[in-house]
Structures are given as structure tokens and as C-alpha cells.
């Protein structure tokens, strides 16, 4: 059940994008997301579409695999479209009862759908080509300047990577606890909302107890292996920019310049 969620799970492949420094990918994704909100008009649309298609092609992640991740957000897209379609004031094209669809509404809804879908696809390229560990490493290093503002950057990234390691373990454990309680006649499905919420207690109590226990064990194991925060720590795989990262920065900057100038010119 929980295992079916596939949005953004790492897809191993041998592509240039997979090999890029995670910081480069983070920056590029950020710029791409901004460009989605900057672009205007058909020319801009063509530019962001081309950009996305090229990235997907280069990443060597099968297209259908990316589309699968969209299913989960389809409901949000539909709701947004409906709101925009009916609630944008302007010249009506079709009217039935009190609702009218306007030309502006149609346009808004269209662009919004594009923006949302491209946003998900664009950022899923990041998670599909970057292992969670690389991602946290990249975040840690990219956010390092915040250390001066007393933001515990190292601790946050350590927590993230530990969470990523334990999510599959806890998912599996949830499954086991569920089965153990089902074997005692528990019922997680029928009944109203209150009854359903109540029926979760036999599932949640063992799960929390186990999670605390694991956290306790893990803290002890980390301490035993001389963990004492980020200070004086070295890395097995330190992040280093390579030539391809430089090229990527240039390409993404050029792309952004095109999108912005298209908006200004047209």
C-alpha cells in the first residue's frame, strides 16, 4: 500500500545528469522552477517545454516512469483547473446556470496546468537522478553559509539522511504490526471516522514505541562510533565541482536568460 508511492524514487542510470554535483542540480532545479513562473506567452511556453524535454532525454529516465509520478497530484491539478475555469472574471464563452467559462479563465487554467505538471516533472528529475544521500550532502554543503547564522545545517542534514534510511524499515514494520493485530481480529477498515481513528491505536502504539527504541539504539551506536557532531568530520565522498558542472551552470543561465528576455521582448 505505502510501497506503491513512486514519486521521485532514485532511478539508477548512467547519464550526465546522474553524475552532476548535487549542488549543481539543486541550483538548476531552482532556476527551472523560477522560470516556470516567469515565462509568458506561446514563445515562453515553447522554451520551457523544450528545456524540460531535453533534460528528461539527457537524464535517461524512461518517460513513462516519470509520468507515473504525476498520478498522485492529478487531483490537485483538476481542482485548480476547475477553480480557474469558473472563477476568472472576463468575457464569457459558455454559460450554464450561474457558472460561466471565460476566455481568460481557459487561458489561466491552461497555463496553470502546464506550470504545475512541469514543476512536478522538473523537480522529479532531481530526485530521480540523485540518491537521497547525495541530495542531503548537496544541501548540507550548499547551505553551509547559514552556519554563521547558527542554523544547525549539519544536524539537519544528518537527520534527513537518517530519516531516509529508516523510512523503509518503519514501513515494513507497520506492515508487520498491522498483520499481528489483524491476526487478533483487529479491523482497520470498517466503521465511521471516529471508529477508524480509534482502531489505529493498536497500530500506532507499537509503532511509536519501536521508533523510539530504534532512535535510542541508533544514538548509542553513533556515539560508540565517535560521532560528535559535524566538527572535525571528514568525508568519504566530498563534493567537488567538475568541468561538467561548470558547463551546466552556463547552460542553465543561458536558458534562464532566454526565458526572461522572451517575457520582456514579447
Amino acid at each position: 500500500m505505502l510501497r506503491d508511492i513512486t514519486i521521485g524514487q532514485y532511478y539508477p542510470a548512467d547519464s550526465v545528469i546522474h553524475k552532476l554535483d548535487p549542488r549543481t542540480k539543486l541550483t538548476a532545479t531552482l532556476i527551472y522552477v523560477v522560470s516556470l513562473f516567469v515565462f509568458r506567452g506561446m514563445a515562453g511556453f515553447v522554451a520551457v517545454t523544450l528545456g524540460l524535454l531535453i533534460i528528461i532525454r539527457v537524464s535517461k529516465v524512461p518517460f513513462f516512469y516519470m509520468i507515473k509520478g504525476l498520478k498522485a497530484i492529478m487531483i490537485i491539478v483538476v481542482i485548480t483547473v476547475i477553480f480557474n475555469l469558473f472563477l476568472t472574471p472576463g468575457e464569457a464563452i459558455v454559460t450554464f446556470w450561474k457558472l460561466k467559462i471565460t476566455w481568460e479563465g481557459l487561458k489561466n487554467a491552461g497555463f496553470l496546468t502546464v506550470r504545475l505538471i512541469y514543476l512536478i516533472l522538473g523537480s522529479s528529475v532531481l530526485t530521480l537522478t540523485t540518491t537521497p544521500n547525495q541530495l542531503t550532502d548537496g544541501l548540507e554543503k550548499a547551505l553551509k553559509p547559514l552556519n554563521k547564522l547558527h542554523v544547525p545545517v549539519h544536524e539537519i542534514s544528518m537527520m534527513m539522511s537518517i530519516a531516509l534510511r529508516f523510512i523503509p524499515i518503519l514501513v515494513e514494520e507497520t506492515d508487520k504490526i498491522m498483520k499481528a493485530q489483524l491476526a487478533r481480529g483487529a479491523d482497520f477498515e470498517s466503521g465511521n471516522l471516529v471508529k477508524k481513528a480509534k482502531s489505529m491505536v493498536p497500530l500506532l502504539v507499537p509503532l511509536f514505541i519501536s521508533a523510539f527504541r530504534r532512535a535510542n539504539d541508533l544514538a548509542m551506536a553513533m556515539e560508540a562510533r565517535c560521532y560528535h557532531g559535524g566538527e572535525g568530520r571528514t568525508k568519504m565522498k566530498p563534493l567537488k565541482y567538475k568541468k561538467r558542472d561548470g558547463v551546466t551552470y552556463v547552460v542553465i543561465a543561458a536558458y534562464f536568460a532566454v526565458v526572461v528576455s522572451l517575457r520582456l521582448v514579447l
Partner: peptide
């Protein structure tokens, strides 16, 4: 499930009540 009782490996996966007696009443 009541006729074929299944006890899983880890008791920690099923104990949840405040007292032992209440926990055994669950089934």
C-alpha cells in the same frame, strides 16, 4: 482468524494496551 490463531515473532508488534490484562482482552 479467531479459529487459527497466529502469534508473530516479535511480541513488541502487538502489545499496546496500558495493562497486560486489557491487552489480552483485545482479541
Amino acid at each position: 482468524r479467531g479459529k487459527v490463531g497466529l502469534v508473530f515473532q516479535y511480541p513488541e508488534h502487538q502489545l499496546f494496551e496500558t495493562t497486560i490484562f486489557a491487552d489480552v482482552c483485545f482479541g
